[in-house]
Write a protein that binds this DNA or RNA. Structure first.
Lengths: 352, 352
DNA sequence: GGGATTCATCGAACCGGTTCGCCGGAAGTT
DNA sequence: AACTTCCGGCGAACCGGTTCGATGAATCCC
């Protein structure tokens, strides 16, 4: 069922069918209606590959995000969902590419073989070879996150530096003097993930400003690691009374670790960080956090990309977001009781 | 940069370049090397649209899942991740389509315009018009979930009936006599989502067998709704001592609701259900649950689809999974104390 | 040494759309 | 009546690959 078949049955040429569909040249009322009737009867839809080949656009955007194996976080889910939804509104499909680096086969497929018109990159690194590559190729893209040189680039990002600093100030204002930082996995920090780096920077600087005792940890993206991380924190600095985290996936484990140590949140120990509100509200007590507006960021990324695709010479644009801290229930003033004096029996989780 | 350019620079015809690349006809060592050198120098990669047009296959599979707006669950994330990863192993890309029903524009784009070679459908309904449509069109697909008529169909699914029944028996064995069921949102139940229906069936039948007092609830896919749901449960049947849930996204809220009511899990109240292990381990105490092997299911779905694509006349296959209940820490024998006698102060979550 | 075989390569057609240039006839102008 | 203008539609070329049949040279066999 192709355009030739439609043309034949409508008794016109292929080009006339094409013009009737695209409207790029006038077609008489009469023939247009005849063509549309045939199309409807046969349930014809133009072949996407042929169309893409002819006009050089696939109407597809690539969403590049690191591979699984390790875990996905809920925030990534929010990004994916909002990107897909926003793209649909602009009549774009979304192709998923699980690539962390330039050299990935998947990345080459997507771009080299022109499967997509443009790309949205997630999990940006400060030095990101994917970005360098796209820049060199002049391939349209938008980053969710920003590299070390964000000027003249297309991105939508969070001001992690400001956000973690705000968390520190919030805790310092409540009287906390010894605070831990729970980062993303060490592997990601080493690889130069921007959120991990900028978050750590903001934390460190703000802590120095306030003269706090701090210690930074890395933690895998899962609950058991979060629990283990809290154990390390309390072992290293038993006087710790609060933590700031970027690690959404470990959050449940952090809470569990504190509960096992007999520490009540927020009475004995405060927890805050940078987390999507949807997940911050999942834990009990609900997390006081800088809410990551993941859905909004996904939408914005699509909007920027569409703009870039529509106007090939549009000047670079970006959005830097710094949402305020939402006060929920996981932070409070430093308690008077010793944190090693549990208010309830540790180890109530019998098979831990 | 196309195949003609490569041919010209290598001093051969276009067809020779094509054969050198595909290996479908022998090409002399000498010319092959020359061609490969030129290709490498120019960084050539064949255009995917042209290739798709010529050989009628896009090397892309569609992943059809309901739109956002409502929330995505973690389980869906696991499916998406594992499908993408498995597809990559077979050299397929994954195109996301946020469509719940046949009539969605996105669905029509994907299939009618032949953007994909096959589709994987998520969130199956007992009567699913998408499945009917694909069946009628003889379009290759695999369902994650099964319709009311699963015979002769391609799918990988969970035996929700058996799983919820197992949860009931587990609780009954522990002495629970009054159990609540927390289902997915009412909208989904009405729409005929298979997990919601089969899960409810299994729950109801097993409860009848064991002569238990039960009550079933629907609950939106988020924490606040979970909390509200627990309040309803305790209001309706104060003597309830356990619940079974299919609602992963509400889990955190269910726990919070119990905590607010002063009920300790598992001493005063047991919780179990059907949840991916990754999320079951997030909550404290960790959830005793039938672990949804989402990653495995995603892989299997891709394998089935690839088989179907490779052998167009392959007989229908499916996998029905019924993972055992993983005993963690959220269920226990019915306590001796009255459940309305809190062991700790309710409302400790100060801004709830 | 001539006919059959093998091998590497080429040219042309095709996949299913889009787009450009052109043409024939009706309408409008003087 | 002859000349321009306008409109609707047609045919051919093109996008960038794949694939089939044919061709010519080298090799083999009796």
């Amino acid at each position: 069922m192709n355009i030739g078949e439609i043309a034949k049955r409508a008794g016109v040429s292929r080009s006339t069918v094409s013009y009737a569909l695209s409207g790029k040249r006038p077609v008489s009322q009469e023939t247009r209606e005849k063509i549309q009737r045939v199309i409807k009867d046969l349930g014809y839809r133009p072949n996407a590959s042929a169309r893409a080949l002819a006009n050089g656009r696939t109407s597809t955007i690539g969403l590049v995000f690191p591979p699984a194996g390790n875990h996905y976080t809920g925030m990534q889910l929010d990004f994916i969902g909002s990107v897909v939804e926003a793209a649909a509104a602009y009549d774009y499909d979304v192709l998923l590419s699980p690539s962390g680096v330039d050299s990935d086969r998947s990345f080459q497929r997507l771009l080299g073989e022109r499967r997509v018109d443009g790309a949205i990159l997630m999990e940006i690194r400060l030095q990101d070879d994917r970005v360098e590559h796209l820049l060199a190729e002049n391939f349209p893209y938008v980053c969710i996150g920003r590299t070390a040189r964000p000027d003249g680039d297309w991105w939508v990002g969070l001001d992690h530096t400001a956000l973690t600093a705000a968390c520190v100030h919030h805790l310092a204002d409540l009287g906390h003097r010894s605070i831990a930082f729970v980062n993303r996995p060490e592997r990601l920090l080493r690889a130069g993930y921007e959120s991990a780096h900028r978050g750590l920077d903001g934390f460190t600087k703000a802590a120095a400003e306030r003269g706090l005792t701090v210690r930074a940890y890395t933690c895998e993206d899962d609950a058991p690691s979060g629990q283990a991380c809290v154990e390390r924190i309390l072992h290293d600095v038993p006087a710790s009374t609060a933590l700031v985290t970027l690690n959404e996936a470990a959050l449940g484990g952090l809470y569990r670790g504190l509960a096992h140590a007999g520490l009540h949140v927020p009475r004995d120990f405060s927890v805050t960080g940078v987390v999507a509100s949807r997940w911050a509200e999942t834990v009990t007590p609900q997390l006081t956090a800088a809410d990551v507006p993941a859905a909004q960021m996904g939408r914005m990324a699509v909007e920027l990309l569409v703009e870039r695709l529509d106007h090939h010479d549009a000047p670079p644009r970006h959005h830097l977001l710094a949402p305020p801290i939402s006060l929920r229930a996981s932070t409070g003033p430093v308690g008077t009781g010793s944190p090693t004096d549990p208010h309830r029996t540790p180890g109530f989780d019998s098979n831990a």
